[in-house]
Structures are given as structure tokens and as C-alpha cells.
Design a protein around this nucleic acid. Structure first.
Length: 311
RNA sequence: GGCGUCGUAGCUCAGAUGGUAGAGCAGAGGACUGAAAAUCCUUGUGUCACUGGUUCAAUUCCAGUCGAUGCCA
């Protein structure tokens, strides 16, 4: 197949997903150079320019090697959500595909990747007031009160949600309170089809090696000044963006609740658990083809990718 | 060296006046539609340090050994 024969339907989005610290960034850059294209980052914390060290964002050198989108494009003060990410990425892809027949999306945020690949239902954005009120109910009356309200307002969703998960209950209730429509009605659970093709590549390593990489990277972050970065952000700790591994543990240290050593250990542990959750998410999606981070060559040999090498 | 305390799950420890044991953490698995690096669920067999004794039965009682620790010398 030559470039001239390509139709619009040949455009390809290559998703590179996997657990934290597995080596997605390096691999992504390697692939992007081979394919002569750009990278869209799908990492819900690397969005924020104030969080550089603790999110292991691509370095300035890496960013200058291959253009990245959605890295450090936000401030932690900016409200943001998956839906905005979906529409912004789709808009960007429309433009990028005019120039590049294949584009990479690299990241570890499963929900965000799903939104781009398969879409997310039209739902109202959270209303701050309502959410605060629901959180107060949770605190004062307990989760039972939320369960009871959901049971009345949206029994259909109450039958399928994880009733022990306050975040789920509050989200469903705030939608109902804001719109008068039950969440179960708005949540269609249908996958949108995209105009472009998608190949999903999962990157993984044996758990023991991944853990070593996680631990090593946390040590490196500390050496690179994570403590200072976190200290500067400490006054803003209430912001959602800072409810993040690598920061919240250091905030505990600043409050005098833990030692620095303990906080650093906690960061390692929580990163391992995060990696586990990411793997659980990606593994259940049968579309993923799994590789190791050093498998750039075999990835490029995939029939979907090989036509684009050196274009 | 003497006296005491301790030795139980990867770690910190509980426990049975004798019927082979259980919590927290870690680990493992899972869920997930605008908080997602978030939020939540499930999951505990281990020579109860070793050797011998008493006993129908010992991880539990007794003795010795080893190790840890405290006090005294």
C-alpha cells in the first residue's frame, strides 16, 4: 500500500497502554520516530504543568525529540475531565490525520483511553455545590443515606452499582439532582465507532521487574527534587489533581504524620498498587496485543503498522 | 557469666488455664461512564525456633539447646 492509495479510513490510531514505569514513554518516542508521527499523551496527571517530577512526565529532551500533545497543557487549578479530553483529542486527531496517516496515543489512564477509542455518554458535568452537599450527607449520615436515596431515585442503577463505593453513588445522585433524570437513563453504555482505525498495544513486564522499576523510579524522583516540588504544592493540596501518588504521601510527611522514609516507602507501595489497577483495567479489554517495552521491532512488524514505517 | 522476657503468616503482633491458630499491613485477584495516579470489593495452612519429656493428644505444660532483647555483674 502506498500513501497515494490510502483513503481516509486507513487512518490509524495506535494506543500504547500499560502500567506506570513500564517504559511507555521511551517506547512511544521510539515508535513515533519510526513512524514519523506525533504522540498524544493519555495520562491524567501529566496534564498538569505544576506536576513534573512526580508524574514522570517526558523530559524536555524527550518532548523536543517528538512533539507531544496533552502534556503540561493544564494548570492544577483548571477543572478538567474525561469528556473534555475525549472531544479535545478527537478534534486534534482530525487535524493531525491531515498530516500524519498514523498517530500514537501513549498513556496509562484507562478511562481516558476508552473515552477516545469508544466514546463516553453525554452526561452533565459535576455541579460543585451538589457534590459538596452529597459529600456532607456521606460524612454525617453515612453511606446508607446515599444508598437509600439512589434506591428511590434510580433503582435500576442501584441494582448494578457497587453500593459500597461512595464515589459511584455520589456521581449517580448528583446527576439526578442536577437533571431530574436517572443516571441509568443517561448511561447508554454503547460504544461509538470512530472514523479511524485503532490498534491497541499493551506493554507489560514480569511483576518483579516492574516493581524494581517502580522502586527505582521513585528513588530517582526523590533525587530529582520531588520533595521540593511537593512542598511548593502543599498549600494547594485540596485540589483534586494533587490527590495523586507521589504527592499525597509527602503531604502526610509535611503535616508531621509520617517520616520521610515512611512516605517514600508509601509512594512505592501505592505506585505498585496503581500499576496493578492499571493492569486489571487493560487486561479485561481483549483488543490489546501485549508486548514488552523492548519489543519496538515486533510492534512495528504488526500488519497494521508496517505499511507506515518510514513514510 | 547470673536473672528475666521473647521466639506464631513476607512484616508488626494477638491467642488458646492442652484438642494443630487469627488480626492489621504487605502480597494476589477483581470492579470501574466527567474524582480515574481517583474510588471501591474479594482473598489468610503457617514445620506456632529446635530437641527431648509428660499426656489419648503439645504450638500451648516441663527440661534442655539455639537466637533476640532487657537488667545485674
Amino acid at each position: 500500500m502506498t500513501a497515494i492509495q490510502m483513503t481516509i479510513d486507513d487512518r490509524l490510531l495506535v494506543v500504547i497502554a500499560g502500567p506506570t514505569a513500564v517504559g511507555k514513554t521511551t517506547l512511544g518516542i521510539q515508535l513515533a520516530r519510526q513512524l514519523g508521527t506525533r504522540i498524544i499523551s493519555a495520562d491524567s496527571r501529566q496534564f498538569y504543568r505544576e506536576m513534573k517530577i512526580g508524574t514522570a512526565a517526558p523530559s524536555p529532551e524527550e518532548l523536543s525529540t517528538v512533539p507531544h500533545h496533552f502534556v503540561h497543557h493544564l494548570s492544577i487549578h483548571d477543572p478538567y475531565n474525561v469528556s473534555r479530553f475525549e472531544s479535545e483529542v478527537l478534534l486534534l486527531l482530525d487535524n493531525l490525520f491531515l498530516q500524519y496517516p498514523v498517530v500514537l496515543m501513549v498513556g496509562g489512564s484507562g478511562l481516558y483511553i476508552n473515552a477516545v477509542c469508544h466514546g463516553i455518554d453525554m452526561l452533565p458535568d459535576p455541579d460543585h455545590e451538589i457534590r459538596v452537599r452529597l459529600n456532607m450527607i456521606l460524612e454525617k449520615s453515612g453511606i446508607r443515606a446515599l444508598q437509600d436515596e439512589l434506591q428511590i431515585v434510580d433503582p435500576e442503577y442501584a441494582a448494578v452499582v457497587d453500593l459500597a463505593n461512595p464515589a459511584r453513588l455520589i456521581r449517580a445522585l448528583e446527576i439526578y439532582r442536577a437533571t431530574g433524570v436517572p443516571f441509568s437513563t443517561l448511561r447508554t453504555n454503547t460504544m461509538k465507532t470512530r472514523r479511524f482505525r485503532i490498534v491497541k498495544i499493551g506493554i507489560d513486564l514480569p511483576r518483579e521487574i516492574l516493581n524494581q522499576r517502580i522502586n527505582g523510579r521513585v528513588e530517582a524522583m526523590i533525587k530529582d527534587g520531588l520533595v521540593e516540588e511537593a512542598r511548593q504544592l502543599y498549600p494547594l493540596r485540596h485540589l483534586n489533581a494533587l490527590n495523586t501518588v507521589g504527592y499525597k504521601e509527602l503531604f502526610e510527611y509535611f503535616e508531621g504524620n509520617t517520616s520521610l522514609d515512611y512516605a517514600v516507602d508509601k509512594i512505592k507501595t501505592n505506585s505498585r498498587r496503581y500499576a496493578k489497577r492499571q493492569l486489571t483495567w487493560f487486561r479485561k479489554d481483549p483488543d490489546y496485543k501485549w508486548f514488552k517495552p523492548e519489543d519496538a521491532h515486533s510492534i512495528l512488524e504488526l500488519p497494521e503498522l508496517s505499511p507506515f514505517i518510514g513514510l
